[in-house]
Amino acid sequence: MATERRPIGGGGLAVLLLLQVAVTAAPLALLPFLGLHVAQMGAASVFWTAAILAAPAVTTLAMTPAWTGLARLLSLSALIGWAGGMSAASCVLIALASDPRMLLAGRLVQGLAGGGVVLALAFRAASPSAGRGFALMQQAVSAGCLLGPLAGGLAFEQGRIGALMLGCGGVILAATLATVAASRDLATEPAGEPRSEPSRFRDLPLLGAGMCGSAGAFAFVAFFPAWASAHDPALYTPGLIGLLHSLSWLVAMLVLPLWARGMDGLSPMIALVLSLLGCGLAFAAVPLGAGLVGIVAFRLLQGALFAGQAPALFAAVETLGPSRTVAVARARASLTVGQLVGPFTAGVVLVPLGPSGPLFAAAGLSLAGAVTLAATTHRPRRTRSRAP
């Protein structure tokens, strides 16, 4: 006789949070300095840097169709073991890499880990509602995004990036073992009858909106330093740009409980529309001559608004997916595609439109997602009763 799933205890939730922070922070400790790291290996080719940057996205997308089958074969705790073990292995490969090929291999393994899918399922299973589960996950992601570059910067300056990556691998492995032990009673799917297979195209507007939001955010982050340097290089030093970026993630951590209440009490669809719309307007306002105080305000606002996008997307797609696993995997894939599309789109408009062009492109992508979603707001409401 099947038993009802129960949330894990406080200790189990704590190690799950630590695991999410660690698997987020580890790759971000290297990412801002990747080009310099590749150059130190004696391979300053732009090709290697681009390939290593894109590698996790390639394997993440390749793994998307496999998660449904893996979720049927393996328990959630076993999937957590897979994700954490592969993430730790990725850190070790990156730490030991003496040439770009091994560094590329480490980044490919990072994508194969599937932490973005598996840990989302874990947070959802450990929480009583979609809003609370996915918002808690995003808080841990925000903490990792804040800590990773700070730790990486210090380690890189001291020539200790390899030691840092080994340390991250050790933390990930320890947190994985503890989380596996604490999550044995959790399941990837909720108790009850499985949901029937809906139309394959029903979640496409949501996935498209998620892709646009991710594309807009990554386009802005990638090209904001170029705009700032062209606008006032004496004022916008790398230190100030990094501080603005860190403050955005700090604000995100603080406001996510409010997003959780909005998603649970109102609608994840409405929360996603508001986030996309607000981010788009904030992106567009930056190059309009707001001054330093205005830029700081807009960056803080962007952090607060962007915080709700991924949790709202996961929660909304869950109401339409044939299973929670399929929904989370598709949502994660859409965000990954956005990470590739955004910088490419912004780069295309850089030459004809100048440094402000990519920021307006970022705004356009986010606003396009909001418009797409606003035109289909009736769909999740019609199918909400499907969720067990």
Rank of each mutant, 00 (worst) to 15 (best):
I172N: 01
R195D: 08
G148E: 02
G144P: 04
P198N: 03
G216W: 00
A155Q: 08
R184L: 05
T176D: 01
P233G: 11
P149G: 00
A209S: 02
A143I: 13
R132Q: 08
L173C: 15
A219F: 00
Q139T: 12
A135T: 09
G170W: 02
H231P: 03
A130E: 07
R195V: 09
A187I: 00
Y236F: 15
M137E: 13
A178H: 02
A228D: 04
F218W: 14
A174G: 10
D203V: 11
A130N: 14
I172M: 03
P205I: 02
G169T: 00
A143F: 04
F201L: 12
G152P: 02
A155T: 00
M165G: 05
S199T: 09
G159W: 14
A187G: 05
Q158A: 15
Q138I: 09
A230G: 04
A130M: 10
P205K: 01
C212Q: 07
A230S: 10
E197V: 11
S196P: 14
G153D: 09
A174H: 03
S199K: 13
A178P: 06
D232E: 07
L154A: 06
S214V: 04
S214Q: 15
P225D: 00
V221F: 15
F134W: 06
P198I: 03
F224G: 00
P149C: 00
A174F: 01
E197C: 12
W227R: 07
A163E: 15
L235T: 14
A226T: 11
S196K: 11
G133H: 10
L235V: 15
P190H: 08
Q138D: 11
G152C: 03
M165T: 09
P198L: 03
P198R: 01
L150H: 03
L186P: 04
S199E: 11
L204Q: 03
M137C: 09
E157S: 14
S214D: 03
G210V: 07
S229W: 07
G210Y: 08
A191F: 12
G167R: 08
G192L: 05
I161R: 03
G210I: 01
V180Y: 04
R160A: 15
G162N: 04
G170Y: 07
A222K: 01
G162C: 00
D185K: 10
M137W: 02
A228W: 10
A228N: 04
